[in-house]
Design a protein around this nucleic acid. Structure first.
Lengths: 130, 130
DNA sequence: AAGTATATACGAAAGGATTCGTATAAGCAA
DNA sequence: TTGCTTATACGAATCCTTTCGTATATACTT
């Protein structure tokens, strides 16, 4: 049944994880309602997906009450880290810096955001990276 | 047949595009050989994939000689931009800056790379962004 | 010319993701 | 209790991606 924790979510699964990260442990009904704020999805579709995710180990579920409660198995940052690594490999041939440059160059960063990044760079340069 | 230019490549298709971007217009044989440096892939598999890509409009092909020559339809940066946007939306809920911070925080940037980024930030701050 | 090597075209199998219909069980309301 | 609402479970259809077998055409070699 449950797989190792390096399983990658599909796009639909990731969409569900986003909801779980944002709202915490939730029922299928709740997740499905949230999804339907964006696009039409049948209830059993969402249910099936979440069952598969439980199977893959992407979510944990509490089956004590009739309404099962699902919770993301990994933290959002952990998952982002994993997905980012793979994305950089696939789309930027492994060059994270190239990707950062692209992102910075195109994404209209605010002064505050740039300050944040500068602060981070200072920390990195002073060897406190990590 | 040929689709609009916002078609997204699958992972396998992206792998082929990488080769085309790196080496320029190429034959199926050449691409297949390159792929086989990484992992085993049958020739007709690569052929089929590239035909589908031509169909989708991801590559252009010159069929004048017996050996067709394929070329990426979009530039690497254009495609990266497109993929990056979608990735940020899906994995970082649209926050490019959050993603940049993650990437910087974890990817052991060299001093030179950090300098590059600092230079870019200076340019952005002086309003020359774009 | 005959045989070999190499190309594309086509179709279809295999696997995974996504969707949902239907069955069944549990709780609630009259 | 009987019926209505709302859960989960299960199986299967559909669609997309990936893979490759086979057919056929084109060029090269002797």
């Amino acid at each position: 049944m449950s797989q190792n924790q390096t399983t990658r979510p599909t796009e639909s699964e990731l969409e569900i994880l986003q909801i779980l990260w944002e709202h915490g442990p939730s029922s299928v009904r709740f997740v499905n309602d949230k999804l339907n704020e964006e696009r039409e999805v049948g209830y059993t579709t969402t249910l099936k997906l979440m069952q598969i995710m439980a199977d893959k180990g992407l979510v944990k579920r509490n089956t004590e009450s009739r309404t099962h409660i699902y919770e993301a198995a990994a933290g959002e940052s952990d998952m982002q880290q994993r997905l980012l690594k793979r994305f950089v490999d696939k789309a930027f041939r492994g060059s994270a810096m190239k990707m950062v440059m692209q992102a910075l160059g195109n994404h209209e960063a605010s002064a505050e955001e740039l300050d944040e990044i500068k602060a981070l760079i200072r920390r990195l340069e002073s060897g406190e990276g990590d």
